[in-house]
């Protein structure tokens, strides 16, 4: 999902000359499929999940009882919730940071004046590859690569970095790093592509002027490239924070949150509460907490976009 703000959605409409009253219904007719869909599949479910979160034994029992904020207290006070928050924070911040650094590095390299167009086009296709795979495929591919007998361990043992094959995804000490690494691999192209478009939009003469003033490559990067890319970087970083903190499929298919909760995220924790333990009330409280967190991030994103306009 891309989070967009309506830059021009509320642009003034043309001055209606005639049949103004009749026209008032026309836009709603055009909007009605959207409104019906969003009410049934967005508004009602959100009301439902908030309702569930305030009840006990929903879905599993016929007559749930009102429980106030008990479910929230139980979720927020649980050990597993704290673990999941810490893991999600680590997973998200490290992923976003690495996406940004790799995206910047690769886009600057791919934009180099020193290489010809064909070379750059070839590398661009290779660099974009991780983006073309669905998460299910990425998960399974890395399970193959990171298998104790897999090719990554073979290379590490051959180079003398490790003595024996490491169970990257099933050792408590490495699993969180391994899933974070996989997510970094999977997600950097999105940054790279956006930054590349941004780099190509920076006027050449800014660099010419800097060279005349005797600025070296690094100075040009710090004083021209970074400030010019800043709006894109901030937007992408917030978007990536929202997506990565909601990541479910990758974790679910590589570690399932294990071993012993070391890769448990807020999303996997909520899923397990609902569909493994059938604690739908707790899962709903947790789902509402995640919703609130995402809305806070979204608020900052929208405010940033508004500030740019």
């Amino acid at each position: 999902m891309v989070l967009l703000t309506p830059k021009k959605l509320d642009a003034p409409a043309p001055v209606a000359t005639r049949a103004k009253k009749k026209r008032n219904l026309v836009p709603f007719a055009f909007l009605s499929p959207t409104i019906i869909l969003l009410v049934i599949l967005m508004l009602i479910p959100i009301v439902m999940v908030i309702g569930y979160s305030l009840m006990d034994n929903v879905i599993m029992k016929k007559n749930p009882v009102f429980a106030g904020f008990n479910n929230y207290v139980e979720v927020l006070g649980s050990e597993i919730f704290r673990t999941a928050v810490l893991n999600t924070t680590f997973f998200t911040t490290v992923s976003v940071g690495a996406h940004l650094v790799l995206g910047l590095l690769f886009s600057v390299l791919l934009n180099s004046r020193l290489l010809n167009g064909a070379t750059k086009a070839l590398f661009r296709v290779i660099y974009v590859l991780p983006w073309l795979f669905t998460v299910a495929i990425i998960a399974i591919l890395w399970r193959l690569l990171l298998n104790p007998n897999g090719v990554v361990n073979y290379v590490l043992v051959t180079l003398g970095i490790t003595d024996t094959g490491v169970e990257w995804l099933s050792s408590p000490g490495t699993a969180l790093f391994a899933v974070t690494f996989i997510n970094i691999w999977a997600g950097y192209p999105f940054f790279m592509v956006s930054l590349l478009a941004g780099l190509q939009g920076i006027p050449r003469d800014l660099y010419e002027a800097a060279r005349v003033d005797g600025a070296n490559g690094l100075q040009q990067f710090v004083n021209i490239t970074l400030p010019q890319l800043r709006p894109i970087i901030v937007s992408m970083a917030v978007l990536d924070l929202i997506w990565t903190s909601q990541q479910f499929a990758l974790i679910w298919m590589t570690t399932g949150g294990g071993p012993v909760n070391v890769t448990e995220m807020l999303s996997t924790m909520t899923y397990k509460m609902a569909f493994s333990n059938y604690q739908f009330s707790l899962a709903s409280a947790s789902a509402v907490i995640i919703l609130v967190m995402s809305m806070v991030l979204a608020y900052f994103y929208v405010r940033h976009q508004k500030a740019r306009d």
Partner: peptide, 27 residues
């Protein structure tokens, strides 16, 4: 077109994008 609640509907459509899938799953 210009119509009543245009801004509100806008904001809803933008905000909907940030609703986490996991939140909708249980309902």
């Amino acid at each position: 077109f210009d119509f009543p609640f245009k801004k509100t509907i806008n904001i809803v459509i933008v905000g909907v994008q940030a609703v986490p899938p996991i939140t909708l799953l249980v309902p």
